[in-house]
Design a protein around this nucleic acid. Structure first.
Lengths: 219, 219
DNA sequence: ATATCTTGTTAAAATACAATTAAAATAATA
DNA sequence: TATTATTTTAATTGTATTTTAACAAGATAT
């Protein structure tokens, strides 16, 4: 019998934001904060903050609020950020290289251990100390090294096949920048970053505002 | 009197996905599709597809379904993709450069017209034909050239100030890669791409699955 | 002590999603 | 051509999820 109810994605998606705000507070040497104070800072209701946090336990104290450092560390544990993760980049193009060069990842315990590509001009190179291998070597690498997450930054046409291979070799997380939907087994998590989609929704909203302005000025 | 009800974000966020699938169908020379067929392909209910689309008008025909090309072009218009947008990149680091080098943007009518940075080693360079300017020149540029969207790929510490400046100079859209929340006027749209947040939620879910597996094997 | 805070939790409201239906238009078929 | 199958639109209803509000009980502060 599993008593833990499944926590909704809406809640999970807010956790990193809490984590960020609490980190800021910590840096400002603020030791305690109430849900009300935090709610004005974050622009969400205090009620939601309490509900969200209470999914994971009672971290606060009546009459006092939340201890910033304690809550920060609890959320860190909840997110699983209290250990190191090994990532590989599959597809050494623009985005792939940018992620390898993004030094902040390492500070948080995200270590990119290898890049894979098909391009002979890239293979053998190193990007910030990370070697670029031929995709042919990927199976061997994944089977001999712990790989927590594969970052997929390759063309649509190849993404599905590669993801299936990786999953069959035991990779449990796909951070998918390819503009395609991946069908994965239930125990493999896919997190999509569809940049173009994001830009499109931005454009929609810009145009929506423009139209509103035009129609309201036509009175 | 404005009869158009505001369309929910949930619907808008699904539009690019419809658009992508319809584009695929178009490339496969499929001329018509019913909501039912599309629902099995996209793994959402036919009911929702019809509801979503009917927010914007009746694009289908009873007994026939939807004409793929027509619907594709209608969604294109809804998203505002039937024109060209001028973008600037603020912050010429890894992500900024990767976006400039991302050739697919141009195919869709997203043209990056300039990059701005503070780094003297970058200023004066060109990235795929796009010049990198000193941030000092940004005000002049924005006032003399139409800029639809600013892509913010700069450090947290500077992002808010720069975004405020840009807004005051008339930029209506911010595609924000900086790990910070921007407070903007109502007529300025902010679309956040918080990569680290996205990775964190992925890690949470991986750990969640792992815990489930462990607890279920402990029976 | 007592008045003020503030949490955790329950209850209510709002939102989003899914299913159903009648009516109308089309396509396929006999 | 007439008839039957589809299948959308539009409206409605039902259901689930998410968010907000309310409040009792515990802790703080004076």
């Amino acid at each position: 019998m599993n008593s833990e109810r499944k926590i909704s994605s809406a809640v999970i998606n807010r956790l990193p934001r809490y984590y960020r705000y609490l980190g800021d507070l910590l840096e400002s040497d603020i030791t305690r904060i109430s849900s009300k104070e935090l709610s004005t800072k974050m622009n969400i209701t205090a009620s939601q903050i309490r509900q969200d946090l209470n999914n994971f336990g009672g971290f606060g104290q009546q009459g006092y609020g939340y201890n910033v450092e304690y809550l920060y560390n609890e959320i860190k544990k909840i997110l699983g950020l209290d250990r190191v993760y090994n990532l590989i980049v599959v597809g050494g193009g623009n985005i792939g290289q940018a992620l390898v060069n993004y030094t902040n990842f390492e500070k948080r315990g995200f270590v990119i251990t290898a890049v894979f590509d098909v391009n002979p001009r890239l293979i053998g190179m190193t990007i910030r100390g990370v070697e670029v291998y031929d995709v042919d070597k990927m199976e061997e690498f994944v089977k001999n090294n712990k790989v927590d997450v594969a970052i997929l930054t390759l063309p649509r046409s190849q993404a599905s096949k590669v993801a299936n291979d990786l999953a069959s070799w035991g990779v449990k997380g796909m951070w998918n920048f390819s503009h395609v939907d991946l069908a994965m087994p239930d125990d493999v998590i896919v997190e999509n970053v569809h940049l173009t989609d994001s830009l499109m929704t931005l454009l929609y909203k810009i145009n929506e505002v423009e139209m509103e302005e035009n129609s309201s000025s036509e009175n």
